[in-house]
Design a protein around this nucleic acid. Structure first.
Length: 282
DNA sequence: TCATCACCTGGAGA
DNA sequence: ATCTCCAGGTGAT
């Protein structure tokens, strides 16, 4: 059972939940809000640029219990045994929020590129461990930016989303601490009200940064998985696209099937199906 | 409630 | 080289 507790860095970072990570000389360096993290796999060690380190790897989760809970069918069992070290991460909410707003209709590599440019243009430059990094900007910086500046980061039509979404944070209309406290449905209804955030992006933000582990982002890959392997379970054979009503129906069935940690199962399935198709991660 | 469609941009494949 | 197509979707009609 000791193997089950081991976090696999390469697999976890390369699973589509984080973007601002680079492997330098065998070590992973990554950005989480204002914090720079340096992680080594063996021995597993985390060094943070900040004193109060966040529990980025969710080491407070009872992972054995969670993995046991999501092993509801053969496919998830396969995915868990193939990627036993895959974990959900606990991200800085604002960075996560902006990251996934940028994610619409682009490849993962492009998302990383946009975000890197955002940090370089709006973040604070700091030195850490002999390397130069840029922190993720505070909401005010992006809220007060010009669309032109955002466009120069390659955001395209997402530029207006990022600006408005940041203004919603500054104004207090979106309050991450509040969203953490309330239940999934309440938090989601508030998030999808933000210009540029729909069902899928809201679920990513909820799952990856707001402690809503029942969130199960349904994107083109997840939909493909549901159609390919679960058509009998979720009745998802027909539509190519997915309506709002249908998204909710499917989510309800998903939680009924996978249980309260459905988000974990999503991460394993997503990872497996993308690997199967040789898709790139960063 | 549902189905289409336009949308910025960069990278991959023809 | 040049073009087409597509990418962790969303908003407008």
């Amino acid at each position: 059972m000791q193997e089950l507790k081991k976090i696999d860095l390469d697999i976890t970072i390369n699973s589509g939940q984080v973007f601002l990570w680079d492997k330098i000389g065998g070590m992973w360096y990554g950005l989480n809000g204002s914090e720079i993290l340096k992680i080594t796999q063996d021995p597993f060690k985390i060094i943070s640029s900040e004193k109060k380190m966040s529990d980025f790897f969710r080491q407070d989760d009872d992972i054995e219990k969670i993995l046991q809970s999501i092993r509801k069918d053969k496919l998830v069992k396969d995915a868990v045994s193939r990627f036993p070290g895959l974990r959900l991460l606990r991200q800085d909410p604002f960075q996560c929020y902006i990251s996934f707003i940028c994610s619409s209709n682009v490849s993962i590599g492009n998302i990383k590129q946009m975000l890197k440019k955002i940090t370089k243009k709006f973040g604070k430059r700091i030195n850490f461990d002999g390397h130069e990094f840029y922190t993720f900007p505070i909401p005010e910086k992006l809220a007060n930016s010009n669309i032109t500046e955002l466009l120069s980061c390659g955001l395209g039509f997402r530029a207006k989303y990022v600006k408005k979404a940041s203004q919603n944070i500054v104004s207090g209309r979106i309050d991450f601490n509040y969203l953490k406290k309330v239940d999934y449905k309440t938090a989601k209804d508030i998030l999808v009200d933000v210009y540029g955030i729909g069902d899928k992006i809201a679920d990513c933000i909820l799952l990856f940064s707001l402690e809503k582990i029942e969130a199960f982002p349904i994107d083109r890959w997840t939909l493909r998985i549901l159609r390919k392997y679960y058509s009998d379970v979720f009745d998802e054979s027909i539509s190519r696209s997915i309506t709002k009503k249908k998204y909710e129906d499917i989510h309800e069935k998903i939680v009924r099937h996978f249980g309260p940690f459905a988000g974990y199962s999503q991460q394993f399935l997503f990872k497996m199906e993308r690997e199967l198709n040789n898709k790139k991660w960063l």
